[in-house]
Amino acid sequence: MQIEPIAPPSSGPPARDHAHLRRVSQELEAAFLAEMLKHAGIGTGRNGLGGGGAGEDQFASLLRTEHAALLTERGGIGLAESIFRALLAREPTPAETPR
């Protein structure tokens, strides 16, 4: 049986989990990309003859949203990383947080 050494207690505050900030950054990038895809005409009908109406527009919106989310998951355009770094810079340091 091998015994794992016990890690010494850290002298500083615990490291913050930034997963929430990263997720929010990716959601913002996905929303931006969905709007860009909408304005680029992605998901809109090719002709105005007998389209699917309001239902088609709603489902096209869902498709654009999903495409944007997948683009973001695969690296996106780098906007999520910029947003993440900006949010991280605005986060108070442990010394600034009230106790």
Rank of each mutant, 00 (worst) to 15 (best):
M1K: 06
I3R: 10
I3V: 14
E4Q: 08
E4I: 05
E4M: 05
P5N: 05
I6E: 13
P8M: 06
P8L: 10
P9L: 04
S10T: 10
P14Y: 04
R16E: 08
A19C: 06
A19L: 11
H20P: 00
L21M: 14
V24R: 13
E27P: 01
A34F: 01
L37H: 00
K38V: 00
H39V: 08
A40T: 04
G43H: 02
T44Q: 10
T44R: 08
R46D: 01
N47M: 07
N47R: 11
G48E: 09
G48Y: 01
G48K: 03
G50C: 03
G50D: 06
G53S: 12
A54Q: 15
G55T: 05
G55L: 13
G55V: 07
E56D: 06
S61G: 10
S61P: 01
L62A: 11
L62E: 02
L63A: 10
R64W: 00
R64I: 01
R64K: 10
T65N: 09
H67C: 11
A69H: 12
L71F: 10
T72R: 02
R74A: 13
R74Q: 13
G75N: 09
G76T: 00
I77R: 05
L79I: 07
A80C: 09
A80S: 13
S82K: 15
S82N: 13
F84Q: 02
A86W: 05
L87W: 05
L88M: 15
L88C: 13
A89S: 15
R90H: 15
R90G: 14
P92R: 08
P92Y: 03
T93Y: 07
P94I: 07
E96W: 07
T97Y: 06
T97I: 15
T97C: 06
T97K: 11
P98W: 04
R99H: 12
